[in-house]
Design a protein around this nucleic acid. Structure first.
Lengths: 351, 351
DNA sequence: CCGATTTCTCAAAACGTTTTGAATTCTTTT
DNA sequence: AAAAGAATTCAAAACGTTTTGAGAAATCGG
């Protein structure tokens, strides 16, 4: 293993200059820099992490924690984010340590990892309403960035999408097509994104002067069977007049809704319009659904590069208030949405 | 943060002595050692990892890689092992870095992690037949331990169970109950454990002079539906005379088999005996199946402490040949096995 | 061509530990 | 009581980087 000193004796320079040359410091001459870079490449120099870390006081490692469900399974979407994030961080010379947790206490695994004190910071995922993790970490002065947003006006760094707008835009599209009875299959309510989506949905429906009975706002795990089960019960008409449109939290949920409609002999979009939010997981293509699915579109992986960037800035001392981004999801209209069926334009009556 | 020097000035000792005292070196006096330990506790001393690593040349971090399936899901059993292993390693001052991979090349993710050169070694899981990873890592002199065994007489460290014996013992039990037509629902054949189980099964059946038609040795993902589907087709009698006993690779598979028997109005163990191998996942209790399931029993988590211990020994220079353990699974006879039904004692006829 | 900048380079200190080789103290033996 | 030996302890070097504070070389204006 070649060291800085090896390069320095090779070129008759000091290690200080070699270090600066390789780290892109401005005060080193262009000619010297390229000589150093050549030598480094030629000798196969690779910086010794441990030495860098000792000198800088940083470990170069950030942590992330997966919360396992009771059945030991993990969130479908988690790994998609994880792989991309790992790559983005690696490209910036940070390593990601993953820890799994199955306990009840949301902060305990973070405390445990901090104790091992290997970490410079954290990436938080799956923010919940009233999430205790930001407070815990901020109280200890531990840098972190959150994928999503647990609080309305957070004092921490985060990158998320505008979940209120997701609902508002979807409802707006459907309302413009004349729909009045729109139902919502939401994410599990403990997650902050689901709370925001529901709030947006209610606000938008109220703005259209359409009340929604409690029975037509439901939630569940983001699976096909959730969509199938709920849609089947709604479309059978037992819970009251059928919705003419259904908003789905995820594309697998929408797949279930489409199957339920098919099983009941309903045609989409003639009898029913379906809109979903699309996290753009690599193995699910709503454009290839039958019919092609109208979605709000916001790839989860798109968050990874900004999150990595923010975390680094944060570690370098940037104040959290500057590291907050909310992205707006795009609305992609495909074939699963159409005009409200004739004679079905009336809203639900709330008793 | 208190350092060694802080302690040394506090006590009027040298840092060398303090270091030795804390690291349990034998040449430090008992009185001095306890004084040092007291002071360390009092000052809240915590060793600086980076400094330790620089001095020892070790990173204190080992890696593990999850292979994701095409649908981005991970192996059910993986997380069980992962959590326990993380804890066992942490207890020995090692951190575990997890990386996820979805590519085709089995060694590429290892090469990538080595390049980041943060790691002292690896834990390998899910050995496949002809697994290229051991060769790759050994060629580079990278220490690792394998959970399981990819080769008959490996030159590397591993901890696994005797999968041949799993089949032999199960067949032995059933044969002693008079069963002659025993079918096997195995794990996916690319995994080494499945190959061993099948070999053991064939050998044991041959030893009992019972031939098994190809149709009655099948495999699939370790799920309930795999068991259900295969058992349903076998027990319907379409593929030939019904088996009187079924060996299952996992307990979820056995659950599917039991359901199939129930759906067909067959009683277990009167009409059909069922044996499974039990990995002892925390959320599945074969003792509470109906009927309680006869199993070969080998908790996956039991491998974690030995694996951690072996890896540390290996990192400290112990030769791999000494770090090889094969454990024999226990046979637990419960209520899902019974004597062969009257008149069903004859084996399959191979055309 | 001289002094004043500016640009570049250097030697040395620092980071906190482990390890080496020698020096000191304590114990035993003669 | 001195010598030998064992048991402790010590100072210093080493690990490979980053960073500091100065110094040397190059460039500039006059």
């Amino acid at each position: 293993m070649a060291t800085l000193k090896d390069i320095s004796v090779e070129l008759g320079l000091s290690v200080a200059t070699v270090s600066r040359a390789l780290n892109g410091f401005p005060e080193v001459g262009a000619k010297t820099r390229s000589r150093v870079q050549d030598a480094a490449a030629r000798l196969g120099y690779r910086p010794n992490r441990s030495a860098q870390r000792l000198a800088t006081g940083r470990s170069g490692v950030v942590g992330m924690i997966v919360k396992l469900r009771a059945d030991m399974s993990a969130d479908q979407t988690f790994f998609d984010v994880l792989t991309t994030l790992t790559a983005e961080l690696a490209a910036r010379d940070l390593d990601l340590v993953l820890s799994v947790d199955q306990g009840d206490d949301p902060v305990a695994p973070y405390a445990r990892m901090l104790e091992r004190d290997l970490l410079d910071g954290f990436v938080l995922n799956a923010p919940a309403t009233g999430d205790p993790r930001p407070g815990f970490l901020m109280a200890r002065g531990v840098p972190f960035v959150m994928h999503g947003q647990a609080d309305p006006a957070p004092g921490y760094a985060f990158f998320g999408i505008d979940n209120t707008a997701v609902s508002v835009d979807s409802v707006g599209l459907l309302a413009s097509l004349g729909h009045a009875r729109i139902a919502l299959i939401n994410g599990e309510p403990r997650f902050a994104f689901a709370a925001e989506r529901e709030a947006g949905f209610r606000a938008a429906m109220t703005a259209e002067a359409r009340a929604v009975p409690a029975a037509f706002i439901a939630d569940g795990p983001p699976t096909e069977s959730t969509g199938y089960t709920l849609a089947l019960s709604w479309l059978s008409g037992r819970a009251g007049p059928r919705p003419t449109a259904i908003l789905c939290a995820t594309t697998p949920v929408a797949a279930g809704v489409l199957r339920a409609a098919r099983d009941l002999g309903l045609s989409v979009p003639r009898d029913l319009s379906v809109v979903a939010h699309d996290d753009a997981l690599p193995n699910i293509r709503p454009a290839h659904f039958n019919p092609a699915l109208t979605v709000t579109h916001a790839p989860l992986r798109d968050a990874c590069a900004p999150l990595a960037e923010m975390l680094i800035d944060h570690l370098n001392g940037a104040p959290a208030a500057r590291l907050q981004t909310v992205k707006r999801a795009g609305l992609i209209v495909r074939a699963s949405t159409g005009p409200v069926p004739k004679g079905e334009e009336h809203p639900w009556q709330i008793p």
